[in-house]
């Protein structure tokens, strides 16, 4: 069975869940080979998890290069010849590695897919308004997979280790001069959360976002924000949901003081259940809400939080 390369997504020795989603998806196409590009010993730390999730082979490419994303591209380029395809997480970095790899190797680029089969891939576009199927017309397509789209199935692979060289970068590269990782905090990640509570301009201030956070914490939820809330400085940009923010699809999405502009809906309308609280009964968010309360979020959200806490207690 032909091997399928999976670029391992990891930060500071920790695996990202999306890697296991990629390994699951890779099994539909062939034999998964995990490619770890990182500092000395990076692969050792991740090997067990990768094997448990289906990696038949683990390529360890160790490097201390400060070239930005160039080692990842170069390693995948050196391995792609015998592969049936390459799977990469559709993160900002992953999309960039994928694009650069595709132009170098003349491979079809299938971006941000939500499903992979032997016949092709599935896309969900315009914020879930359309579904489309696509295929590559070249050998070894490069595919980026939307985080959270694939349900992880753990089934162990052979996990054979192999060290590979990191070829020298071709062309001039950007140099990484510093990094400041995001402090995750105790709440779940937006794209991984099963429940999300989001606040909009209606929350009115950064201080009052504690109302959104309070409800979120009672539900074990992630906190999101509309672009208006981000632009007004109420909440940091990495929490923005929508067209130019994150696309999320949780079991439950609660929108507080969000009008439901088309660009916000583009990032959340595929959520399983949507609940909205807005004092304007004409707000378009109600068009996609399964349950809506026309009212003041500052009255409704704390009451809901109390009810949730009561039921848990």
């Amino acid at each position: 069975m032909a091997e399928v390369l999976v670029l391992v997504d990891h930060v500071d020795g920790e695996i990202k869940k999306t890697t296991y989603e990629l390994l699951t998806a890779a099994k539909a196409l062939g034999s998964p080979s995990a490619v770890v590009v990182g500092g000395a010993g990076a692969a050792d730390k991740l090997a067990d998890g990768l094997t448990e999730h289906g990696a038949d082979k683990i390529y360890a490419a160790e490097t201390d290069s400060t070239d930005f994303l160039a080692p990842e591209v170069a390693v995948l380029e050196s391995l792609i010849g015998s592969a049936a395809g390459v799977l990469i997480s559709a993160s900002a970095n992953g999309k960039e590695v994928a694009g650069r790899l595709a132009v170098r190797t003349g491979s079809g680029l299938l971006s941000d897919v939500v499903g992979v089969t032997g016949d092709g891939v599935q896309h969900s576009i315009f914020g879930g308004a359309y579904t489309a199927e696509a295929k590559a017309n070249t050998e070894h397509p490069v595919i980026t997979v939307r985080p959270g789209a694939i349900d992880i199935e753990a089934s162990a692979g052979a996990g054979a280790r192999e060290s590979v060289e990191v070829p020298a970068a071709s062309g001039r590269q950007a140099t990484v001069t510093g990094r400041e990782p995001i402090q995750g905090g105790s709440r779940p990640e937006l794209t991984e959360a099963t429940v999300i509570v989001s606040g909009g301009r209606g929350v009115g201030s950064a201080e009052d976002f504690t109302v959104v956070e309070g409800l979120a914490d009672s539900l074990g939820a992630a906190v999101g924000a509309s672009r208006a809330a981000v632009d007004s400085g109420y909440y940091p940009p990495q929490f923005q949901v929508g067209q130019t923010g994150k696309s999320v699809s949780p079991q439950l999405y609660i929108a507080l003081g969000i009008s439901g502009a088309i660009q916000h809906r583009a990032g959340m309308q595929t959520s399983k259940t949507i609940v909205a609280v807005n004092k304007d009964e004409e707000a378009p968010i109600f068009e996609v809400a399964d349950f809506g309360i026309v009212g003041d979020l500052f009255k409704v959200a704390p009451q809901l939080q109390d009810e949730v806490t009561k039921r848990k207690g």
């Binding site: 900002a92 590269q173 140099t175 990094r179 400041e180």
Partner: peptide, 9 residues
């Protein structure tokens, strides 16, 4: 989403 990276070229 992965945080801040400072780049130069």
């Amino acid at each position: 989403d992965d945080g801040v990276t400072h780049l130069s070229a």
